[in-house]
């Protein structure tokens, strides 16, 4: 439901606040994104630094780090996901309640980063679970994580509550569980979840 922005501003000047249910609902959602207390590698230290006094993540309503996935809205993949860890990451993601979001923090979470060619390193977490925001960097600075938060908030704010792009918790048919890869004799099986990730086409 669109609202006449000029009219809204004009009424705001007169002391009348007008909004839509969708805007109010999403404003509430975006201002209390609770991340999961979940650190993987180097980026986790920058994540901790972001929550500390200097960068102060609390300004975004996201200072409450929950140790349990059931209480968290946001998973920050802060570091390298190894093949030994990947099943656990997917399982933790499955345990989170909708609506849930994922930030892939740093080069390793995006693609394996500098460790990409290692035998035990997963080449990007988006092979198994959907990622909302990617932040490049090795490790990204705290400012970059804040930028990712703002990007995520804008994304939440813009989500329509009806229609095909509605959040998954309002969609009864949305996929809830993501298959957990199995640790095989040589590699993870399967090596990616085709429902989430297809091989990107490289254009040169």
């Amino acid at each position: 439901m669109a609202i006449d922005q000029e009219l809204k501003i004009e009424m705001g000047k007169q002391g009348v606040v007008v909004t839509t249910l969708q805007e109010l609902y999403n404003w509430g959602r975006k201002s209390s994104v609770w991340p999961m207390q979940f650190g993987l590698a180097c980026c986790a230290i920058e994540m901790i630094a972001t929550t500390m006094a200097r960068y102060d993540l609390a300004r975004f309503g996201a200072e409450v780090f929950r140790p349990s996935p059931r209480q968290a809205d946001l998973m920050i993949i802060s570091g390298t996901v190894t093949k030994k860890m990947a099943p656990q990451v997917v399982r933790l993601y499955n345990q989170m309640g909708e609506p849930r979001y994922v930030i892939a923090m740093g080069a390793c979470a995006i693609s394996g980063g500098p460790f990409k060619q290692g035998y035990n390193v997963l080449k990007g977490i988006d092979r198994y679970i959907p990622v909302d925001v990617h932040i490049p960097g090795c490790p990204p600075r705290p400012e970059a994580l804040l930028q990712a938060f703002i990007t995520l908030q804008n994304k939440i704010q813009a989500q329509p509550l009806t229609g095909p792009n509605r959040p998954r918790h309002l969609d009864a048919e949305a996929q809830g569980e993501f298959p957990v890869p199995v640790q095989g004799e040589h590699d993870l099986e399967p090596t990616s979840n085709p429902g989430v990730w297809t091989v990107p086409v490289v254009i040169r």
Binding site: A41, T82, M85, F115
Partner: peptide
């Protein structure tokens, strides 16, 4: 152990 085994030693040989 091993949940953050990033193969430093193997990568180093390359």
């Amino acid at each position: 152990f091993g949940y953050l085994h990033r193969n430093h030693e193997q990568l180093g040989e390359k």
